[in-house]
């Protein structure tokens, strides 16, 4: 059990800057994110797209913004728990017990949800029949490639993940690559390689088809694919892999008893607390009259939520407002010497 002042759910720009504000006022925090890297949407959706509306930074990419935010909170040495997801909350004597998917436990008076539009999850096949094989022979990521040796593997998708795995697995498996159109999103070099492998009969390339049904009782036998003119055919498969990118799902947050407005959480604008004491929401996931889904708004919300956490984390102390330019306490926390 890790005891802390605040658990931040989400390591996007809003969560990161909020951690900075917590560090400045002397609170500790732990940051949990479902992705395997820090930065949220900035790093997953638009790492190379320029952003033009960060105050005092005329232009920076999602990646640059993330790197600078990481640098800004470095002095506080906060721990990140990546590839993990907050799953369950329980209230015990005014303390929240937070459990993650990987079995970590935190005890904290405060939780700040900075979850954006939710956690990133792989997009799955639309066919119901695929569900019963989910995680066994229908997969959306690969942990151990040796299981595919000498097996029939049908891969769906047109991006780099689909192409790279098709190329890699074609060495030791019977690979079929299925994509809904003739063009591919993946890198040109990979596309050329796929076409060459297809010409040499090393892989079976099928375009303009998509999944229709998954066949098999108990164990997977094949996958039925269809085109838009209504023709369909069955391809033998021991494994079916889908690489359709990531979607954002609110996930377990919806089960925590918070008021919800569509996929957002209503908060007050004084300290961004939700209807639950000690649970705050900031950034794209919160809503209030006039809410703007801008990174700069998330920064403001994080600064106020951090102060909101103070009274629960330090009930016997009085919060004192200080400037970073003047406060020697803050400079100590930042480890700067002048």
């Amino acid at each position: 059990m890790i005891k802390t002042d605040v658990v931040i759910v989400g390591a996007g720009p809003t969560g990161l800057f909020c951690a900075h504000q917590l560090g400045i006022i002397g609170l500790k925090c732990e940051i949990v994110d479902n992705l395997d890297k820090i930065g949220g949407q900035c790093i997953e959706l638009y790492p190379d797209k320029p952003i033009y509306d960060i105050p005092a930074i005329p232009k920076c990419t999602g990646k640059e913004l993330t790197n600078n935010l990481i640098k800004q909170i470095k002095p506080f040495n906060f721990d990140f728990h990546l590839n993990d997801r907050v799953q369950e909350l329980k209230n015990e004597n005014d303390r929240w017990i937070v459990k993650t998917l990987n079995g970590k436990e935190f005890e904290t008076p405060n939780i700040i949800i900075a979850g954006g539009v939710g956690s990133f999850e792989p997009r799955k096949f639309p066919t119901k029949s695929a569900e019963k094989f989910d995680g066994t022979s229908v997969l959306y990521s690969i942990k151990d490639k040796t299981i595919f040796k000498d097996k029939s593997v049908v891969i769906f998708g047109g991006g780099d993940s689909a192409l790279d795995w098709a190329i890699e697995l074609s060495n030791s498996s019977k690979v079929t690559l299925v994509h809904r159109r003739d063009e591919f999103k993946g890198a040109a070099a990979s596309v050329n390689k796929i076409k060459k492998l297809s010409e040499n009969k090393k892989i079976n390339l099928i375009t303009r088809y998509s999944i229709k049904d998954v066949k098999g009782n108990g164990s997977l036998e094949g996958v039925e694919i269809k085109n838009e003119t209504g023709e369909s055919k069955v391809v033998k498969a021991d494994y079916v892999l889908g690489f359709f990118g990531l979607i954002m799902q609110l996930g377990p947050i919806a089960e925590w008893g918070l008021n919800l407005d569509k996929k957002t959480i209503p908060v007050n604008t004084e300290n961004f607390e939700t209807n639950k004491k000690g649970i705050f929401a900031i950034g794209d996931i919160c809503t209030y009259p006039g809410k703007l889904k801008l990174i700069l708004s998330g920064f403001h919300e994080g600064a106020l939520a951090a102060r909101g956490c103070f009274k629960y984390a330090r009930p016997d102390e009085k919060y004192r407002f200080e400037f970073t330019t003047a406060s020697s306490t803050i400079k100590d926390r930042l480890g700067v010497k002048e």
Binding site: G158, R180, R181, E183, F244, G245
Partner: peptide, 13 residues
Amino acid sequence: EDDMLDQAFEPKS
């Protein structure tokens, strides 16, 4: 746009 549509739910032409 088409690259993004590859990731949609049941994209068609």
